[in-house]
Design a protein around this nucleic acid. Structure first.
Length: 456
RNA sequence: GUGGUUGUAGCUCAGCUGGUUAGAGCGUCGGUUUGUGGUACCGAAAGUCGCCGGUUCGAACCCGGUCUUCCACCCCA
């Protein structure tokens, strides 16, 4: 080994066991998506830069992986641009493509580009990797999978109700019980900002509010003051900081704060609709919780905002998120197209399931039966049986070399192969097969027909 | 992007204040005679001590840079 090979930070290799576990999650999510009526699409790994740039805010732009142009890209840079050495400005002239940052913006692009072939409302799901030039941490990678389901072309709040049901269905199917689906509404946040006279400081206000459970009431107020939110406004917020109790009590508190805000009242109405729907339909294992401090993805959400927290006791960032964006496709020129969707963070879900030991034991896929190799004639006979088994849908293989049987048995063990067949001289003579169950150690002499039926 | 942290055989880690051939457990491989494992015994291989440079008579150990790990911000799945 001349040089130790490595992979870029924030990326990972997956061994067969890990792939099996990940596929288990993929399959579970996919089947729930389809049960709920979503259809799959796929989009390219990279897009034109102008499709992505500016869609995720300044912070987002920084985290987008840019792809260097091919050829002699520097020759196309204007001299004066080159002289001032401003990376941001030069980037646009040396990079015209960028890696997909999420699945929502490419989906919006897709909808606009294919609007004439799509029947609205369009329910699509998409399970693909995305890339972010972020600094890795636990549960935070530079290449990771998102599993998105979105509906575009419907304003109905039933969609929001459905998505809460979908979250519940997926996490229930994965055996991950007790997740909290937090819900909030952009209109409520805007309403509050309006009431306290900080409409123009909505982002600052929500960013500060979002930190409530992390840094505490006093520091949040401090931050709000420093951002120029008046003390009088903060005082009107007082009930907000001690908001607790069930959905109903929280909502009535909110109502009193938002009396004077039309938008705020609209937000409350929406929340109540969704909550009533969920209360009537019920949830299997998840809990729906109103969280007015929830303020993720505010760049484009306009209505409901969702975030899923892992069950208590697990330290992990959110394992899912989503919301309503009234003007999803507007940036690409298609007006009045409301979208709402949710996302599952596959990689984080995998970490949580691993932590809690919730992966089923049977998911590692291995071959069902291994034939011991005793030599040329025996191998040929074995291959015939292997072929017969395969046509009956039984995964089977012959150990390729005539090694000591102890080695061959060890190999079967390590690969967790449940059955071994010995086909040697004596079996050949009697036209039988010795089938050994590696779990129990039992073995029996059987005919080919019995072998097939025993393994099917 | 800011601040911190980590990096020694395939894996988990030892390695005293810089001093001769860098260690252990697990794993791997081979053997314990010929067709039987997962649990025995014997033996072996395997490390440019992340990488580059510096200080020193001498560096795994000190200094600088760089990459990587994890963490806190930021942001997010």
């Amino acid at each position: 080994m001349a040089q130790k090979p490595s992979i870029p930070k924030g990326t990972r290799d997956f061994n067969p066991q890990e792939v099996a576990k990940r596929n288990y999650i993929f399959n579970t999510i996919r089947s729930q998506f389809e049960i709920f009526g979503f259809q799959p699409i796929e989009t390219p790994s990279f897009e034109n830069s102008d499709t992505l740039m500016g869609k995720y805010g300044e912070e987002g732009d920084r985290l987008i992986f840019k792809i260097l142009n091919s050829g002699d890209y520097l020759s196309k840079v204007k001299d004066e641009l080159y002289q001032i050495k401003d990376s941001n400005k030069i980037t646009s002239s040396i990079s015209e493509k960028a890696l997909r940052y999420d699945l929502t913006v490419p989906f919006a692009r897709y909808v606009v580009q294919h609007q004439n072939e799509i029947d609205f409302p369009f329910k699509r799901y998409q399970i693909q990797p995305v890339w972010r030039a972020d600094r890795p941490q636990k549960g935070r990678f530079r290449e990771f999978f998102q599993c998105d389901a979105d509906v575009v072309g419907s304003n109905s709040l039933w969609q929001e109700v459905e998505f809460v049901q979908l979250y519940d269905a997926v996490f229930t199917a994965l055996g991950l019980h007790g997740v909290t689906i937090k819900i909030n509404n952009r209109k409520i946040l805007s309403g509050i900002a309006e009431v306290i006279g900080a409409q123009d400081k909505l982002i600052d206000f929500t960013v500060a509010l979002d930190k409530l459970d992390k840094i505490g009431e006093a520091k949040v107020k401090e931050e709000m003051l420093s951002k120029g939110i008046p003390q009088s406004g903060i005082d009107t917020l007082q009930p907000l900081f001690s908001l607790s109790g069930d959905f109903g009590t929280q909502v009535s508190e909110l109502k009193s704060i938002l009396e004077t805000s039309e938008e705020g009242k609209k937000g409350i109405e929406e929340l109540e609709f969704i909550n009533t729907g969920i209360e009537t339909l019920g949830l299997e294992t998840a809990t729906l919780q109103l969280d007015v401090t929830l303020a993720r993805g505010l760049n484009y959400y306009t209505g409901a905002i969702f975030e899923v927290a892992a069950p208590e006791g697990v330290t992990m960032g959110s394992i899912g998120g989503g919301g309503r964006y009234d003007d999803l496709t507007g940036i690409f020129g298609l007006k009045d197209m409301s979208g709402v969707g949710i996302s599952f963070g596959l990689d984080r879900i995998a970490l949580v399931l691993e932590d809690l030991g919730l992966f089923p034991v049977t998911i590692t896929n291995t071959v069902k039966v291994l034939f011991i190799n005793f030599g040329e004639a025996e191998a040929m006979a074995s291959m015939k049986a292997v072929k017969a088994l395969r046509t009956h849908g039984v995964s089977a293989e012959l150990f390729p070399d005539k090694k000591k049987t102890i080695k061959q048995f060890n190999y079967a063990n390590k690969r967790d192969i449940p059955f071994v067949v010995l086909l040697g001289e004596s079996e050949l003579a009697s036209n039988t097969y010795t089938l050994k169950n590696m779990g129990s150690g039992e073995q029996q002499q059987v005919s080919l027909e019995q072998l097939i039926s025993a393994l099917q």
